[in-house]
Design a protein around this nucleic acid. Structure first.
Lengths: 113, 113
DNA sequence: CTAGTATATTCGAATCTTCTTATCTGTGTC
DNA sequence: GACACAGATAAGAAGATTCGAATATACTAG
């Protein structure tokens, strides 16, 4: 059971391992959007965007609803937003660590004079 | 600011997008371990493992401590375990959805007779 | 049926990842 | 110093990912 679970996690991470796909998921945070709107909003090439959608669909991160000529995308499970939010906090805490480390080094440099 | 943050998230996901690296992170859930122990425990090739360690170090997911002839690895920030736990739940809820969907289809098939 | 709009798919080139094998570096022991 | 051990790195082949350009499909309007 562990092996398939690890594969699953790795696949989800793989699916999210691209800035454009992160942007797509984040844009859907507050609900569904038509493909065209996403493409405009994120400034993507149509074909490229569609490829990224396909990757996210394949991993069942996105679902789509067709209405006439348009395709509306949405997140299948908002839990992934939670993951992105955790990483945002992680990013800033890491930044803070780095900054205070640099400050300490700076102090050291000052002390030398 | 959004662009670098998305890149950061994508990089973290990329670093975790391999079953072996997931296994390494999970093995460190309860504290540091020497490289050799990880390698034995997970049944890895030494060189390959070392490359995976390097990827996780580069993204500052792991930190290492050298003691004589040995290198001890540990997670820099346990928040990533939280992310893995969220995905475990996500996996099971997806499984449950799939199973009940299959059951419904099964019922449909029965009804046809 | 034709034309137009929205989205998806296919193909190929460039780039990145992964694995294996071989080699290197650092540390401890005699 | 010479050797052994733990771990890191380098090189290259095989495979996966990414992108743009072209093409395909599906729906709508007239």
């Amino acid at each position: 059971m562990h092996e398939p679970l690890r594969r699953f996690k790795a696949d989800i991470f793989q699916a999210l391992a691209h800035p454009t796909r992160i942007a797509i998921v984040e844009a859907l945070r507050h609900g569904e959007l038509p493909a065209g709107k996403l493409i405009d909003q994120l400034g993507l090439e149509q074909a490229n965007a569609s490829q990224h959608f396909a990757i996210l669909r394949a991993k069942m991160i996105l679902v789509n609803r067709k209405a006439g000529n348009h395709v509306f995308y949405s997140l299948r499970d908002p839990v992934l937003i939670e993951v992105l939010d955790i990483l945002r906090r992680y990013f800033y805490s890491q930044l803070t660590d780095t900054v205070s480390m640099l400050e300490e080094v700076g102090q050291g440099e000052q002390a030398k004079r």
